[in-house]
């Protein structure tokens, strides 16, 4: 039962991360296009997201990393929070600043720090999980 829930959490975590990764990059590219910003801004959030994806794929081959139910749950919640922010940025037409660009960049920029914190926390947790298991 516990194993079933855990593998369900683990695989949905990867699916959610791919969705979050795609949406976030789409918003960042649109943001750069709209404001003619530097590409470096994409890397700040793009690299941690890519590293998280890489770690998740690597943990496919490490059962002990894969089986940490608490970390799986925490990462899923973090990724869902990122998806909620991305979703509102792209689709929430009730926010008045959405009307200008058909995407609310101001809201996304306001929440960018939150997204960064969640990304770095998930990444750090993953690294620690790998380190911990390697030392045993």
């Amino acid at each position: 039962m516990k194993k079933g829930i855990n593998s369900c959490l683990f695989y949905s975590k990867i699916i959610f991360l791919i969705i979050a990764f795609t949406l976030t990059l789409y918003i960042l590219f649109s943001l750069n296009d709209y404001y003619h910003r530097d590409v470096v801004n994409i890397l700040v959030i793009g690299i941690p997201l890519f590293l998280i994806l890489l770690f998740f794929v690597l943990s496919l081959f490490k059962d002990k990393v894969k089986d940490n139910i608490l970390f799986n749950l925490a990462s899923i919640l973090g990724i869902i929070a990122i998806i909620v922010i991305d979703y509102r940025t792209i689709f929430d037409s009730d926010m008045v600043l959405w009307i200008d660009a058909k995407m609310n960049f101001y809201y996304f920029i306001n929440n960018l720090d939150g997204i960064k914190i969640m990304c770095y926390l998930i990444l750090l947790g993953n690294v620690l999980l790998f380190l911990k298991k390697d030392e045993k």
Partner: peptide, 13 residues
């Protein structure tokens, strides 16, 4: 880390 993540993300959602 898991605790902070759970609290922060639940609050955000």
């Amino acid at each position: 880390i898991c605790g902070i993540l759970i609290i922060l993300s639940s609050y955000t959602i």
